[in-house]
């Protein structure tokens, strides 16, 4: 008998003999209930290390974020003790600057500076509180600027024709992190939330 025939005969004989396997072996392989239990156990065994690894990675990321927040929180507090001239980082527009000017144990005064206004005649800005707390009030040249309503938001309106920069005093800032400045100058529109 050729080798190929011999191999083929072996395969056919085994497959044929499998038809006479013990009934319980046959039933066991296809027992739906057992398979379900087996599957659940296997799924658990298979995925548990991955789940654990993912959890560790996630936990590490959360820890890093928490530590970063701690560092971010501590550093500006330390500098607040000195001269109150901290410049807040601007989130979006480079031409808006907010700096603390005074601190009376309860609230800050801050100077809000708009720059790059040379091509703008009209500046609209709104001071809002992220948390919904009373928003700080603004003073320009010692007086409250005129306000206008736009899209449900009250904006201060300043005529800045011929000016490149404008500074406004904000008073009653209880939490600098909570302040949000929404402004519109010519084509520029941005929302700035100073980070402390």
């Amino acid at each position: 008998m050729s080798r190929e025939k011999s191999k083929e005969l072996y395969a056919k004989t085994i497959l044929s003999a499998m038809g006479n396997l013990d009934d319980d072996l046959i039933a066991e392989a296809h027992d739906a209930e057992q398979v379900t239990v087996q599957s659940a156990a296997f799924r658990l065994r298979r995925y548990l290390p991955r789940v654990a690894a993912s959890f560790l990675v996630l936990a590490s990321l959360v820890l890093i974020v928490l530590l970063a927040r701690q560092v971010e929180y501590i550093l500006p507090l330390a500098s607040r003790d000195g001269e109150a001239t901290d410049a807040f980082a601007q989130e979006k527009a480079a031409h808006v600057e907010l700096s603390l000017t005074d601190y009376d144990e309860k609230t800050f005064s801050a100077t809000l500076t708009f720059t790059g206004l040379a091509d703008t005649d009209l500046l609209l800005f709104a001071v809002e509180s992220e948390s919904g707390a009373p928003a700080p009030s603004a003073l320009y040249g010692g007086a409250v600027p005129e306000t206008v309503e736009k899209d449900g938001v009250t904006y201060y309106r300043l005529n800045v024709k011929g000016l490149d920069r404008v500074s406004v005093t904000l008073s009653g800032v209880t939490d600098p992190q909570d302040v949000k400045i929404r402004f519109s100058a010519g084509k520029e529109e941005a929302t700035v939330r100073p980070s402390v």
Partner: peptide
């Protein structure tokens, strides 16, 4: 069948 056939060597039967 092919799988089973391949599991024996040509010298076995």
């Amino acid at each position: 069948l092919d799988e089973l056939a391949d599991s024996i060597s040509g010298w076995e039967s």
